[in-house]
Design a protein around this nucleic acid. Structure first.
Lengths: 159, 159
DNA sequence: TATTGTTATACTCTATAACTATA
DNA sequence: TATAGTTATAGAGTATAACAATA
């Protein structure tokens, strides 16, 4: 009877889930560093990203997209407005709502964020050759599809 | 001249590094939930894990292993001692040092943590078949080898 | 009455640096 | 004087709930 090493023969080795969290956190940290060099917190970067894709969101809607609570958005939008990246206006239709849009400087910052994200990815994945990178992307996509999290929520945008 | 989609043909698709951080954070969150069900914070779980492997550490050494600062360990060890998982004694050789060891309950908790980690991994990797799990493990190991972080530091042990 | 944004409050974490006791 | 552990303090970040304006 083969008893002891039976389970070890199939599936991933023991610490794989741990490694996944560790490598993911490391990637998030390094992205945060790059973003900080642009004078942004990860959360601010996330807000700009979301607004770049869906202009005119209310604060409530943006909070939902970012996976945070509306009251936390006040200071965040204050900051982004002060830096000239975001415009906050009262909605004409429903004057309780704020309409959030990217200012021209915000559009420019979004473009730089895209460059930074690309450089960051090249850096993070550089230990892998092209085939391995494609394989990793496919595996992660499969895991992400099974898991349900907010589209632009968690990762490096938490701190 | 093929100009535009040239870069897209090799390497990972655009949001792979982002996905890595996202999936990794999700895994860490789910592990934290399981650990909380045992009445532990991720940090406490990390401390028990480290002490299980290297008994007799001083608080300074444990702090280094966990990637934190010594002053933060005081409350952590207080808590683990109160729960009966860790024993804190003055060192005979150098009476400035504390010698940290796992109490019997700590050993039992460590065994439960190992079970929880195994169940967690099975859960996290369940969307993948066995071959895919092995492939992912290899890719992550390659990334981890290239990156340098503390052995038991970061991942879910931050909060 | 319900909802949006805002503010206020209290609470948790954390870092930093004093402090003590040993060496 | 230097080091391990501890304690104190102050700061950042957060959640929660109260609040004002609008619907």
């Amino acid at each position: 009877m083969t008893s002891t090493p039976e389970r070890a023969r199939r599936g991933a080795p023991p610490r794989t889930a741990f490694l996944l969290a560790q490598v993911g956190a490391e990637a998030a940290d390094r992205f945060a560093e790059r973003v900080a060099a642009l004078g942004l917190t990860p959360r601010e970067a996330g807000a700009i990203r979301v607004l770049g894709r869906r202009q005119g969101l209310s604060q409530r809607e943006l909070a939902e997209q970012l996976g945070t609570v509306p009251s936390r958005l006040v200071a965040l939008v204050d900051e982004l407005e002060a830096k000239g990246f975001v415009v906050r206006e009262r909605s004409e239709g429903d004057r309780r709502n704020n309409v959030l849009t990217l200012a021209p400087d915000g559009e420019r910052m979004l473009a730089r964020l895209r460059e930074v994200a690309e450089a960051h990815q090249g850096d993070v994945l550089s230990p892998l050759d092209d085939d391995e990178q494609v394989a990793l992307a496919a595996l992660l996509a499969k895991l992400a599809a099974a898991s349900s999290f907010p589209p632009d929520g968690h990762p490096g945008f938490r701190r």
